[in-house]
Design a protein around this nucleic acid. Structure first.
Lengths: 228, 228
DNA sequence: GTTGACACAATTGTTAACAATCGTGTCAAC
DNA sequence: GTTGACACGATTGTTAACAATTGTGTCAAC
């Protein structure tokens, strides 16, 4: 009787692919063929198709007509826009989280920091990357705003792609000690400091990117022919 | 040879429905039957289906299983979240617009204010509502950030729904003189004033809502049975 | 040896028929 | 007169076959 007891829903497929992208197990440009995904998730083609459309609408996947779906490859311009958006949103989210955090939230934050630290120390890279992104969505969750949470999930996921393209070879997403400092500021009831630390944290991440780097591949040709 | 010369694309259908919702010609709760939309846009069912899925992913449309698509009816909680998100985003957008506005942008703003004023004076209500929402997306456009622009389009559209539900009978979206003041601040090269005016403007809109109002229809019953 | 055209295989996109679900209207029973 | 069950119609959801496009590999020509 239950409507979706046997097959998994589109939301779950989207969530799983989001997770894989965040963990950088699906690098930018990876082809996501329909048949492979059908097999992987054990669902019909239509469901995969809808999932890919949803992923494309959030700009995590790029649909090329008659050529299939690919993990998005953000441009330098898009990278700039994503970080600009994060700089607009996350200080506000930090402030809201500061205002609304309950003791249970602080416990969740503490546990999260522990997990992040452990994953880093034990060299579980994928998990560490996922957790470092999840820290930012956890704050949005504590802020108690589903709209902001949704936005942050998208931005964090796209940030993983951006780091994959423009980040150095071993550049991970965040340094977990900066997360620790933010939580410390929240615990010290110093909202403004938390906001400032978040802003600095984002600038710090962005400063580790080389936005002129990989785009040269295609831009060289384009600028060659578009030249004066 | 052109791929979509005869039929209109999903994006255009989504855009058209967005516009209709912003103009409050599609009130919250309106049923969007597939057959009707197929006829209206002259496209096949699949395309309509995809469009509705995209609209649902942006929470402008609600898909009820086996019952069809309906224009979303935001709850009071969602209304709060939307305005909170706008308060987080729009001051930042105003600042970016301030930093990047070119003379051409100012001309566009001036023309927009004129159109808004005219539509208000001549009583073209739908157009006036649309333009008053469009002012906010125009600022995001001037800010030069596609990510923020997309977010603002969604939020503005949902705001129209929120006003339709929680706004007074004749409550329109914005008072255009407040838009004028914001542009004046930009022209005076007073970025901080523009930011503050935007914040005040949003608070002003939100203050005209009665978030306890219409939800009583269903909440009464729920709270009745959930009572202690 | 390189380049061009051609044909084939694989994948995506579309269409149409089918299945399932829900709302409504009718009708009998109390 | 109201309530319950039942059956019908309408609409949505799914499946499978079909059409179209793209990329690739082969082969001949220069």
């Amino acid at each position: 009787m239950s409507p979706n007891a046997d097959e998994i829903a589109e939301e779950e497929i989207v969530e799983r692919i989001f997770e894989a992208v965040v963990e950088q197990r699906l690098p930018p440009g990876t082809k996501l063929s329909e048949s492979a995904l059908c097999e992987a998730f054990g669902v019909g083609r239509m469901r995969i198709r809808r999932s890919l459309l949803l992923l494309a609408s959030r700009e995590v996947v790029e649909l090329r007509a008659n050529r299939g779906a690919y993990v998005a490859t953000p441009t330098a311009e898009q990278a700039r826009e994503v970080f600009e958006a994060r700089l607009a949103l996350e200080p506000a989210i930090a402030r809201l989280a500061f205002e609304r955090a309950t003791p249970a939230d602080f416990a969740a934050l503490a546990q999260h920091l522990r997990q992040e630290h452990d994953a880093n120390q034990q060299g579980r890279r994928h998990e560490a990357i996922r957790l470092s992104g999840q820290f930012h969505t956890l704050l949005a969750q504590i802020a108690g705003n589903a709209v902001l949470l949704r936005m942050m999930k998208d931005l964090v996921t796209r940030t993983s792609l951006i780091i994959g393209i423009f980040g150095g070879p071993g550049a991970s997403n965040c340094r977990d000690d900066e997360h620790q400092q933010i939580v410390d500021a929240l615990l010290a009831r110093d909202g403004q400091k938390a906001v400032d630390l978040m802003t600095a944290h984002l600038h710090h991440i962005a400063s580790h990117l080389d936005l002129e780097a990989k785009s040269s591949n295609s831009v060289d040709l384009v600028s060659l022919f578009a030249g004066p």
